[in-house]
Design a protein around this nucleic acid. Structure first.
Lengths: 186, 186
DNA sequence: GTCTATAGCTAGATAGAC
DNA sequence: GTCTATCTAGCTATAGAC
């Protein structure tokens, strides 16, 4: 029993969940405190620049998630491209809980301080596109076609999440995930 | 000079713009007051139930916009289906300022009071899908195919807006609009 | 490193003059 | 119908004990 000092990873995940659900302005320090189990003063101890720094931290977590679950997998030569794609899609499905969770890249893109996050958000979209494009090329698509399709996939994922979460119809999201292999098949 | 009593339509449009830009939690009474030119007490005079009622009013405006600019146009027998589609797409492009404005259906779907707006938001998505599906059928698509494509178009529009606004690349949105006719062509 | 307590401010909302 | 003035509650952020 090493006491209840919350692990840095758990902390980040709770912040991630709270910003995803409530957005930047909706995620009050009170809500972030309740979600993490840390009092407000303790959150300021870990993130001296307050809420903005917590949101930036979450963006860092998302970037790392994409590096690990999209980019790295897309380049894994030990798997056939088809298997890599399946794995990436499964991870995306899990991240968004089968279409019932918002994308934090989107929820952080709205509000009074949205400008501060634009760069991090854009970078995450770019990485996601890079990953799908890489798989598309390995599946035999010409590079420019693969990139176009990857951009389309990124748009479809974001749009499906908007609709599925807003309407409470997760099938919309799962249906889009099912379309992805066809979009990258020559 | 009939004095500066703000017109109900202008008022609604300003509320629409502010909720679109800042989201529900980000659109403070102060911000709504500044945007409309009405003091907070005056806003409460017009909307006794406060911010929630203003957001519901905005959802009503959006529904009416869709009725006028999507549904009605989609059924206008004086125009060929191709011309109707062109008109609808042009209206959508104008509404979102060529991909630089958020969709208020999305910005209102996030935050602490999102549940109150779910029904209105879902209804607006449904109407939009109905409109595109109607045009698809008149263009010669089987009814079920037309509906599937219309749902896809709705997803693409939402996704493209997320990406184009978040990354400041309106081309993403215009590119999606350009794809729509092909999606409804048999 | 986490806490209680609180400062200082802004939020949403209301009362009442004009 | 719009305003000024104000209330209370909630916000972000900090001070200082442990």
């Amino acid at each position: 029993m090493r006491a209840q000092k919350i692990d840095a990873e758990d902390l980040g995940n709770k912040l991630f969940e709270t910003f995803s659900l409530l957005g930047y302005d909706g995620a009050s320090m009170e809500a972030l405190s309740a979600a993490t189990g840390l009092k407000k003063a303790s959150l300021y101890h870990r993130f001296p620049n307050g809420k903005k720094e917590m949101a930036q931290h979450v963006l860092g977590i998302v970037e790392q998630w994409i590096q690990d679950n999209v980019i790295a997998v897309s380049k894994n030569k030990e798997l056939k491209p088809e298997a890599r794609l399946k794995k990436v899609i499964a991870s995306v499905n899990q991240l968004y809980h089968g279409g019932s969770s918002n994308c934090v890249l989107r929820t952080l893109s709205i509000g009074s301080d949205a400008d501060d996050f634009q760069e991090g958000i854009s970078h995450c979209f770019d990485l996601t596109i890079d990953g799908f494009a890489h798989i598309g090329r390995d599946l035999g698509l010409p590079a420019d076609t693969a990139r176009k399709r990857a951009k389309q996939i990124n748009i479809l994922i974001q749009g499906a999440l908007v609709v599925s979460v807003a309407t409470r119809e997760p099938g919309v999201f799962r249906n889009v995930l099912a379309q992805i292999p066809a979009l990258l098949t020559p």
